[in-house]
Amino acid sequence: MSIKIEHVSYSYGQGTAYEKKALDDISLEIPQGQFVGIIGHTGSGKSTLIQHLNGLMRASSGKIYFHGEDIYREGYDMRALRSKVGLVFQYPEHQLFEVDVFSDVCFGPRNLGLPPEEVEARAREALDQVGLGEPYYKKSPFELSGGQKRRAAIAGILAMHPEVLILDEPTAGLDPRGRDEILDQVAALQKERGMTVLLVSHSMEDVARYVERIVVMDDGRIRFDGTPKKVFAHYRELEEIGLGAPQTVYVLRGLAEKGFPVNTEATTVEEARDAILEALGRRNVC
């Protein structure tokens, strides 16, 4: 078990007139190696939740366990936790600050107190994982495109060798290819390294395509938690809370309403194609 959250609540401005409950009795378990999508409208508590997972924010009440250890226990090594749970904020490229890409990626591991050879080896490896080769090492972050900057920022986190990678809307503002490149690389890391990945996203299509489990946040609570197929079956309720479902779900539901004998579970393009072909094929047999 990698992360366990028990009855966590958090209020902003506690004790003031502006007190607002951002998390309301959240309980959640995330096993090692899972690829989890977190969706919810703006202000639903997603970002607050993920900042609890590496100890950046402290719950008003409740407990959080990392590998079975209570992170609020006295003497718990928060520093170690932060290097194991890597958090990539929205627009992480705003946090690039070094003179060149390579130095920027070295910053994290150097801060861990690693020897210089190890620091450089990790930076090379991390840049390789995000697809930025040697020619980019000495470039100023300002010379990179939006997608490249973002990949450099993600490499900075990967160089810390996190066990858990949390990404807050990593594809906002990227063109479709840039979006696919980043998500494909994240998916590969999750598969090859067994890394746990939490992806916060506003794109229902992306979530449906990549993750194995979706947690839906609304008003500081978990509204749904399950496989994409199960969660998107609640598309009407999702619309009510500012979300929706991938377009394919609407196509299949529309077909079913017109009496088309189609399996409406599919959430990706490939699944939907197969479901429709199967429905038409079955008709041929009759």
Binding site: P176, R177, T248, V251, E270, A272, R273, I276, L277
Partner: peptide
């Protein structure tokens, strides 16, 4: 480096099939 709406892609895939 662009894409089409998911519905258009689904229709395209069905056509290819």
């Amino acid at each position: 480096r662009l894409d089409v709406p998911q519905v258009t892609l689904l229709a395209h895939e069905l056509k290819k099939s």
